[in-house]
Design a protein around this nucleic acid. Structure first.
Lengths: 332, 332
DNA sequence: CTGAAAGCGCTAACAG
DNA sequence: CTGTTAGCGCTTTCAG
């Protein structure tokens, strides 16, 4: 009952041709029309499916692409992953997924595992820096970064949301509402976004209003709560990700700060619950899915010409969490 | 600069032993202490990493496990995936992820792809029914279902949340608050949960208060809105998933139904935003991560003894979206 | 305890 | 256009 799968040899023998011919026909090589048809027929009859195992060994590389992201539980990354999967599926390529927890060491381990598997194409939301990535690249992995780059990895193509424009828009919107004391609540691996914030704020920037949390929910909450408690003079905050935004909402509620009366909030990344929140959250939407899809496209195209990557637009979606700076925030 | 990776042969020659010996040493076989040490040293020096490609072909199976889920964008499934990844990582196994979109056909395609890759262990949140799964199982894939089973696949081990208890608890809670007209808003592939709802409701059940949506957000919203509009006499609703819950909140708001005054809501699955919502949502929490982890454990243990699967407890978390049935809902 | 040898299923020269 | 052949890197008998 448990028949072994048909191999290329079975097909060859049944069709009365050599294995090479079968291989050629199935990979679109040259063959006489009649031979081709015969092979195809036999292959279909035998329900032949070429084994990736044999091919992989022969070519010294498993097809397929690796996907490394910090946390698959975060809907933003989930959407990026979805984009990658969509693209890979349309190319018939398997995707091996690993989560790094924003830990460069774990990232390196996963890369090692992928290389062992023969994976030589990688889409990553990087955690490590240039130094940590150097060995990987030297090893010849075709890599495309998604969502963010890594310091000292300027030569790796990256598909990014236009953080510069996003941050600038947010800051302009907030200052336009009269805010001056604007805080930034950031996460790991977003040095660039933070830099742009400083730049956009210009003389208004106050380093004490800048806090960066580690990746976890707890850390984000602690950062937000600490910020709000220690700097009661802030009137607006820009949260650099949906986890940070969530933490900000929670912390504000806990400290009895009302949005948007006591504090305005803009969050990076539009998530479904931004609309369910009350007040609903004003956000900078990022095309997460597209980021993943485009990154996968790039990596599948291979180390072709394309030297640099892609910049995708962001969009300010105004909802209810921002207000003009009214009379100063009530003392605490 | 681009040195080829060391192969087992390189190690053997450098250490002055046969390849078989190297293989044995590295896979914990028998070897004299000195030989073992020499091989290990050389392997380390050469930074030798055994190629999974070779091994896979030899063993006619790629290690690694396949993971099939409806939608990686849904945080519930994301958490399940996280659990699977966590377990697989601790076992050093790669995970190939595919999303089915709750489409049996697509599911079948993905399974085909996995088999081509030599994957022979699968964790799945199934979309298809027994008939659709039969070929897969016959082909010898070690399969474990997570989160739900498939009709006619009773013999496949499954790791499930205790839906029966969950639904019962929810219904009891609601009836305890005086509710009689309780609606059920379900999604695809949850026949069992629905069955339990009918059972738990007993004589109170009204088929017109039962609606099942397809997998998408739009479909969920349409279902919720339709239900609320056509059945203004309902006083409580049980949403069979976070997407459904989200849709219910949105639809209620749109129709100007206030929670919990006009309608009580219990949602399956506790998600971070349930607490951000206002009112915060009363939910049946499910151990999504555990479900994934345990499923991966089972599939890694292989087709061992364990005939049936595992049932994990759910928990009713009371927050603010339910109220005692007061005076009848205001007419519309 | 160890080495030699036989493939796993496939592709890519290389001849015919 | 087609068949033969030589491996890809590894594990696993089978002798020694």
């Amino acid at each position: 009952m448990n028949m072994r799968r048909a191999t290329i040899r079975d097909v060859a023998e049944t069709a009365g041709v050599g294995v090479a011919t079968v291989s050629r026909v199935l990979s679109g090589g040259s063959a006489s029309p009649e031979t081709r048809e015969r092979v195809l027929t036999v292959a279909a009859q035998l329900d032949y499916r070429p084994s990736a195992l044999g091919r992989n060994l022969r070519q010294r590389r498993s097809g397929g692409i690796g996907l490394l992201l910090p946390d698959i539980t975060d809907t933003f990354y989930g959407r990026v992953a979805d984009g990658v999967l969509a693209c890979a599926r349309s190319a018939g390529e398997p995707v091996i997924v690993g989560t790094t927890g924003d830990d460069p060491e774990r990232e390196a381990e996963l890369i090692g595992m992928l290389m062992e598997q023969g994976v030589d194409r990688l889409v990553a939301i990087p955690s490590g820096d240039g130094e940590s990535w150097a060995p990987t690249l030297r090893a010849g992995l075709t890599t495309v970064f998604a969502h963010r780059t890594s310091a000292g990895c300027g030569d790796i193509p990256a598909v990014l949301a236009d953080d510069r424009a996003g941050v600038r828009t947010a800051v302009d919107y907030l200052t336009g509402l009269g805010h001056r004391r604007i805080a930034y609540l950031g996460g790991p691996g977003q040095a660039q976004r933070l830099a742009v914030f400083r730049e956009a704020m210009g003389p208004l920037v106050d380093e004490e209003l800048i806090v960066v949390a580690r990746g976890s929910r707890d850390s984000a909450y602690a950062a937000a709560a600490g910020l709000f408690q220690h700097r009661p003079d802030l009137t607006a905050v820009l949260a650099g990700g949906n986890l940070l935004g969530e933490a900000a909402v929670l912390a504000a509620r806990e400290l009895d700060l009302r949005l948007p009366r006591d504090m305005s909030l803009i969050m990076f990344d539009d998530v479904p619950w931004a609309e369910l929140c009350s007040p609903s959250l004003t956000v900078i939407a990022q095309p997460a899915q597209d980021i993943g899809y485009r990154a996968a496209e790039l990596v599948l195209r291979g180390g072709g010409r394309r030297p640099r990557g892609v910049l995708l637009p962001t969009e300010l979606i105004v909802r209810g969490s921002c207000a003009a700076r009214g009379t100063s925030r009530s003392p605490r």
